[in-house]
Nucleic acid binder design. Structure first.
Lengths: 80, 80
DNA sequence: AGTGATTTGTGCGTATGTATG
DNA sequence: CCATACATACGCACAAATCAC
């Protein structure tokens, strides 16, 4: 699993990051908490807007649930 | 009421989106909050710039009021 | 009870690249 | 060549919910 993003790819960064996080969830690398947007910002070298958009894709896909002020949490596979 | 945008139309996307949102306000589909720019981005498949420009048209028409950091809110018909 | 830190929600301004006419 | 429209992306500021102390 590639752990960084390709700035030259035609695929948008926010989509790449969403795909990456989803793969990590599927692989059991991320189990409970999705890293905070600020963490994603630092870990993957993207802006917060890009991180936020990626996380929203996870939510739309049923992979995560956001709780404002608390964080973003993985939805177990048997609940989606 | 058509709920999506026509990419082949000569009418710019931001104008189509503004018309759509205004129609939804008139129809009472949108009553209090105008969806966030990021939400519009995902729902209608447009960029944030396009969403923002559409919302600004609503503001210019007296249909909405923007509060930075909070959101965009519908102005009731009897107040415009 | 209160204050500051953390985290997400939302909007603003700007830059860059692509496509179209 | 130039203007317009659009998408992506960055960085920022402010708002609000929650948490830690």
């Amino acid at each position: 699993m590639s752990d960084d993003l390709d700035y030259d790819s035609p695929v948008p960064l926010f989509q790449q990051l969403a795909d990456l996080l989803r793969a990590q969830i599927d692989a059991g690398v991320i189990t409970v908490r999705v890293p905070a947007e600020l963490t994603l910002t630092q870990r993957y070298g993207v802006s917060r807007g890009t991180a936020h958009r990626a996380v929203m894709i996870l939510v739309a896909d049923g992979y995560a649930r956001i709780s404002r002020g608390k964080g973003t949490f993985v939805i177990p596979a048997d609940q989606r």
